[in-house]
């Protein structure tokens, strides 16, 4: 029983670490032209990095038919757009200060993060 309990506790620790503490890799926009695919419940890549103080655009391509994937919201930037299915949509971003700007679907089940700066 001790072994099983230990296993359970380890599982909980693993959940906390994997979903909350771990910081995933980011993709960077070099030429200001990032493509994020929306498919199977996730943004791919889900973490993107852009330079500070430069106008940038991100292209979204929604391949996920679920209506959840339809809305794209950058709450801090007051951007809310509809993503058409199987068609690219360019989201223009103003010059931003360093920091982290999350983006998500209407229900926050699809989540991504825009990192500005180093």
């Amino acid at each position: 029983m001790l072994f099983i309990n230990l296993l359970g506790v380890l599982l909980i620790v693993a959940i906390v670490w994997w979903f909350w503490l771990y910081k995933p890799k980011t993709s960077s926009a070099e030429s200001g032209n990032l493509l994020i695919t929306v498919e199977n419940g996730v943004y791919q890549p889900a973490r993107v990095r852009i330079a500070t103080g430069k106008e940038t655009s991100i292209t979204f391509l929604r391949k996920d038919a679920s209506p959840c994937a339809e809305a794209l919201i950058f709450p801090d930037l007051d951007i809310s757009e509809e993503l058409p299915l199987d068609r690219e949509k360019i989201i223009r971003l103003p010059a931003l200060q360093s920091g982290s700007y999350p983006f998500h679907c209407q229900m926050k089940m699809y989540k991504g993060e825009l990192v500005v700066g180093e």
Binding site: W18, F19, Y22, P24, E39, N40, G41, V42, Y43, Q44, A46, M109, Y110, K111
Partner: peptide, 14 residues
């Protein structure tokens, strides 16, 4: 598939 992709993205959903 959604769960698997989300898992590797360090996120979890329905």
């Amino acid at each position: 598939v959604g769960a698997w992709k989300s898992f590797w993205n360090h996120s979890a959903n329905m």
